[in-house]
Amino acid sequence: MPAATKVPLDTVVRLRLAALRLGRRLRRQSGTGLTPSQESALSALERHGSMRIGRLAEHEQIGKSTVTRLVANLEALGLIRRRPDTEDGRTWWVDVTDRGHDLLAGSTERANAYLARQLDGLSPADQRHLLAAVPALERLLEVKR
Score class of each variant (00 low, 15 high):
Val13Thr: 14
Leu103Ile: 02
Pro135Ala: 04
Arg81Asp: 02
Asn73Thr: 12
Arg55His: 10
Pro135Glu: 02
Thr35Glu: 05
Asp126Val: 05
Leu77Asp: 04
Leu22Glu: 14
Val12Gly: 09
Arg14Val: 09
Gly31Ala: 15
Val67Leu: 02
Ala132Asp: 14
Gly63Met: 06
Arg16Asp: 10
Leu9Lys: 10
Ser43Pro: 03
Val134Lys: 03
Val12Pro: 06
Val7Arg: 12
Arg47Ile: 03
Arg99Cys: 10
Arg128Met: 09
Arg24Glu: 13
Thr97Ile: 00
Gly33Ile: 11
Asn73His: 11
Leu9Thr: 14
Arg83Cys: 00
Asp98Phe: 02
His129Val: 13
Leu131Gly: 06
Leu70Cys: 01
Glu138Asp: 11
Pro84Glu: 06
Gln118Glu: 15
Leu130Tyr: 07
Leu140Glu: 08
Ala105Met: 01
Asp120Cys: 02
Thr66Tyr: 08
Thr5Gln: 15
Gly89Lys: 11
Arg128Val: 09
Glu39Asn: 10
Thr108Gly: 04
Leu20Gly: 13
Pro135Trp: 01
Ala105Trp: 01
Ala125Pro: 04
Leu70Asn: 01
Leu79Arg: 02
Leu17Gly: 08
Arg117Gly: 12
Thr91Asp: 12
His59Trp: 12
Asp126Tyr: 07
Ala111Glu: 00
Asp95Leu: 00
Leu20Glu: 13
Trp93Gln: 00
Ser50Thr: 10
Val134Gly: 03
Val143Ser: 09
Gln29Asp: 11
Thr91Asn: 10
Ser43Lys: 06
Leu9Ser: 13
Ser37Asp: 15
Ala113Trp: 07
Thr32Gly: 04
Asp85Tyr: 00
Leu34Thr: 04
Ala3His: 13
Asp120Ala: 14
Arg99Glu: 14
Val7Ser: 08
Ile62Gln: 04
Arg28Pro: 07
Arg139Leu: 12
Thr11Arg: 14
Glu109Asp: 06
Leu22Thr: 15
Glu60Ala: 12
His101Ser: 03
Gly89Tyr: 08
Leu9Ile: 14
Asp88Met: 01
Ser43Ala: 13
Gly23Pro: 05
Asp102Gly: 04
Pro84His: 06
Ser30Tyr: 02
Val7Thr: 14
Pro135Ile: 02
Arg83His: 01
Gly31Leu: 13
Met1Glu: 12
Arg81Gly: 01
Ser65Lys: 11
Arg55Tyr: 07
Ala72Gly: 05
Ala18Thr: 13
Arg16Pro: 05
Arg16Met: 09
Arg128Asn: 06
Arg145Gly: 14
Ala116Val: 05
Ala44Pro: 02
Thr68Ile: 08
Ala44Val: 04
Pro36Ser: 09
Thr68Gln: 10
Leu122Glu: 08
Glu75Gln: 13
Thr35Pro: 03
Ala19Glu: 07
Glu75Tyr: 05
Thr5Ala: 14
Glu142Phe: 07
Leu22Gln: 15
Trp93Cys: 01
Ser37Glu: 13
Gly78Cys: 01
Leu140Gln: 09
Leu77Ala: 11
Glu142Thr: 12
